[in-house]
Structure formats: C-alpha cells, structure tokens
C-alpha cells in the first residue's frame, strides 16, 4: 500500500494522493459547447485541475446539468484538524444504570422536546422511548432516568417551564427541519430564553438532529450535540458522566 501523507491529506480516487473528486451541479443556461466550456472554466476557477465534464444534459428548458470529474492539489494537514468529539467510555445500559444509582444516587431527570414548528419526533423518540433505536433500548427503560417527553411543536417557553416544574437535570432538544437554518435559530432561542430567566447554568443542555454536530452544539452554548446514528446509550453515557462531573464540581472542557 502506498504511503499516505497525513500532513498533505488529499481525496482518493483510484490512486493515492490523486486528489480526485466528483461534482454535480446545474447552470441556468441551455446545454451547449459554450455551456460545457463555461462549466470547465468555472470548476477550474474553484481550484481544480484536470477538469472533465463527464456529463451534460438539459433539465427542463434553459438549465444544464453537469457531472464533473476533477482533481485538486489543495490538501489539509490532518493531525492539525480539530473537531470536538465526545470522548466517552463505552458502557452498556446495565452498567450505566448501576453507576447512576451508585454515584448519582437518584434517577437523572430529563425533559425532552422538539421545539418551534418542527413536527419530527422519530429522532427524539428513538433516544427517549422504551423501545429505543437500532437494538439499543431507550432512556425510559433505564432505572437511572426519569423521562418527560413533551413531543413536538413545543414552544421554547413551555419546554423551559416544564423543565423547571420537573426540577429537571437536563433538557434534551431535538431539531430536524433545517431549511433556512431554522434549527440554529431555535437552538439559539432556547439559550437566549434560559439566559433571560437566569437559568443558563441550571440544566445540562443536550441537542440532537441530523444537521447538528457536537461542534455546533458547543458553539451555541450546549453541553453536547448528537447527530445521525446516535444511540440512546451514547446519550445515557454522556448524561451520566456529566452529572458525576457536576456533582464533583469539576468542569472539564
């Protein structure tokens, strides 16, 4: 196998370091020799070379669709890349449950909801409901959690009210619709409203959704973000560790 230079990481097509990528896009002009040339020049201007217009065809009238193969030399120094990631020890449900009861000594109280006009509940339910997700049981089934699942279309204020009323340890927010960055808007809204009520340090804040990353969550002031493929035990594990950390008064970053 060819040596991979991680300091100059490049895409792999069929030869190490070849920098090959495939792109597809539409230009609002009819397909023509001129359109093809325009697409070639355009892709080159983005820093690619060896640009091949693999396919050009019309979409409706007045639009040309392109599939393009090209190469790049712009590499990245992989070891220097920083992407915050939850670094959790792997534990199964039984172990987490036992540890919570031993160390936190009471069930961790959770309130979860999808806020705003978002009506998607499958992701939140996958984490919270008994049956769980992907063969991994949901938090409701744990003895170590007391779960209130408010469902979807919940106004942010109501979510906070409920969290206060239940004396919750953590708020679990789900945001699925992301058109026009509505998920970010609603994530900010929760933080802003908590601040307004002087509650910004009261709860552990967890957010999840297909367009949520841990990095984004941290940037917006959450303690953790969970994206596609997250399993309830990942979340359980995080909540357990966070609660112990809070209890011991440490705040690790």
């Amino acid at each position: 196998m060819a040596e991979i230079n991680l300091h100059q990481l490049l895409p792999y097509g069929d030869t190490t370091q070849d920098g090959a990528v495939q792109l597809s896009f539409t230009l609002p002009v009819e397909p023509s020799a001129k359109a093809r040339e325009a697409a070639t020049q355009l892709v080159r201007s983005w820093g690619f070379f060896d640009v091949k217009i693999a396919h050009m065809s019309s979409i409706g009238v007045g639009y040309a669709f392109f599939v393009v193969m090209a190469r790049t030399e712009k590499s990245i120094d992989y070891p220097k890349v920083e992407a915050p990631q939850l670094d959790l020890q792997k534990r199964d449900y039984k172990e987490i449950d036992k540890k919570i009861l031993q160390e936190v000594k009471r069930p961790i109280r959770l309130v979860g909801a999808t806020t705003g006009f978002d009506a998607h509940t499958v992701g939140l339910d996958a984490i919270l409901n008994m049956k769980g997700f992907d063969g991994d049981i949901g938090l409701e089934r744990y003895k170590g959690f007391k779960v209130v699942n408010m469902g979807s279309q919940v106004p942010t204020e109501e979510l906070i009210d409920r969290a206060v009323k239940e004396n919750a340890d953590a708020i679990l927010l789900s945001k699925v619709v992301s058109q026009k960055d509505i998920h970010i808007h609603d994530m900010r809204d929760l933080i802003a409203q908590l601040k307004k009520r002087g509650l910004e340090n009261r709860f552990v804040l967890v957010v999840g959704g297909p367009r949520v990353t841990h990095k984004l969550a941290l940037e917006l002031g959450y303690d953790a973000g969970f994206t596609i493929g997250s399993r309830p035990s990942d979340v359980a594990n995080f909540l357990y560790e966070k609660m112990v950390e809070k209890k011991n008064g440490k705040t690790k970053k």
Binding site: S24, I59, F65, Q179
Partner: peptide, 13 residues
Amino acid sequence: EAIHTPWMQDRSV
C-alpha cells in the same frame, strides 16, 4: 430525501 427539499437537479435525476 434525507438532506433537503428537492433541488431542480434532484428532481430531474
């Protein structure tokens, strides 16, 4: 489907 509401080219494909 799992990403966004359809772009013109998605529909065409």
